[in-house]
Design a protein around this nucleic acid. Structure first.
Lengths: 209, 209
DNA sequence: AGCTTTCGCTACGACTCGTAGCGTAATGCC
DNA sequence: GGCATTACGCTACGAGTCGTAGCGAAAGCT
């Protein structure tokens, strides 16, 4: 993930336990200190490794935090709950639960802030976090089309645009609700949100009247 | 804004020109350096003031950047374009234009990240940035109800929830599109987004079937 | 005038950064 | 077993930033 497990055959291999300890220590430090007060020296001490070991594996604070936060999104799943509405509500509640964790809030937002001036970091976030979420939208949409809950889209380009739109609307609304408005994305809110979104998607017309 | 213009009548007054120069220098430094590499000493030099002057007015980097970024949102307006759809498209495009500026992207996101561990900072962001945007939603909704484009909501509590929901959906989608997906919120996207949102809002039923 | 507050400047200890060097530990290959 | 190779822990280092203190000068008010 963060560095080539160099397939170089000879020599002492890198400790996988150290990787796990460092990422866990990073999340713990994010909770206690937040992004700006987090130092790599402190993370190394918490993880029980030398500071130099940390620098050998990650280029800097940005990359380390992205990897540490990305693991939080591994648990995202899309179980079949029978209807598109239930599927959406389920995954949105999962997403909201992750954003409830302090290490996800400060880590993700700070990384995104830095990525506005670092293309490599932006790509890293996209590959390890954003795309993983987006896949759920793709899967849920396909499942809904099989059920006949959503119209099938013949044009692949148009379909991709629609998926992008849905993804930004869902994830954006949850993030904004949680971080900007500072209110919980609880079941009542998720129900209201899902209703508005689905009504908008179900009654899609090819063009505005 | 950032410090009491102390109403204490006597003594040398604080230079308003220094305030403007500092905030402008902060935005410029955000563009060139980004959040993490921005130092208050550098901002002071750019603004032509002493570093101590900066510390006398702002508590730290967080507060300074919030004030500097908040000014960018002053230009948000809601001209009457004749229909709710046009009103929404107009204000979303304005919002997207602001988020196109590098100082808004990195500054706002970094401040939000820090606000997850600083309640006072969160409140500052809410008062000087978020609430100002939310007022536009309130105004646009009232205008649409006068036109008959949206059903009027008798219950004030329910109305407040709906306004919150719309606000998070609009602002969240634009922010996510711009910063997470890394794609422009151009006219084509805004048109698609507005259509889905309005269809969802227009066909509102009191309860899910 | 006299009083009050701000301003620019300098200096300061404390902290973090990222790197270099060294000796040691763990593996693969012969 | 011995050897080459790589990772590890540790220490030390110059550079840079932080936030504050102290000083004399400047700018307003009465």
């Amino acid at each position: 993930m963060q560095s080539r497990t160099p397939a170089g055959r000879t020599g002492r291999p890198r400790s996988a336990a150290a990787d796990a300890a460092i990422l866990e220590a990073t999340r713990q430090a994010l909770v206690e200190l937040g992004w700006s007060k987090l130092t790599l020296g402190d993370v190394a001490t918490r993880a029980g490794v030398a500071k130099t070991t940390l620098y050998r594996r990650w280029a800097g604070k940005n990359e380390l935090v992205v990897d540490a936060v990305a693991e939080l999104f591994d648990e995202l799943e899309l179980p079949d709950r029978g209807s598109l509405a239930n599927d959406i509500e389920g995954v949105v509640l999962q997403f909201a639960a992750i954003l409830d964790r302090p290490e996800a809030r400060s880590g993700l937002m700070a990384a995104v802030a830095e990525s506005t001036r670092d293309d490599a970091l932006r790509e890293r976030i996209r590959a390890s976090i954003v795309d993983r979420q987006k896949r759920l939208v793709l899967e849920g949409r396909a499942r809904a089309q099989c059920r006949g809950e959503l119209p099938s889209e013949p044009d692949p380009e148009e379909a991709a645009r629609t998926v992008d739109l849905i993804f930004d609307m869902v994830a954006g609304a949850v993030v904004h609700r949680t971080l900007m408005s500072g209110k919980p994305a609880d079941e009542a809110w998720v129900r209201d949100f899902t209703r508005v979104l689905l009504l908008g998607l179900a009654s899609q017309s090819p063009e505005t009247p």
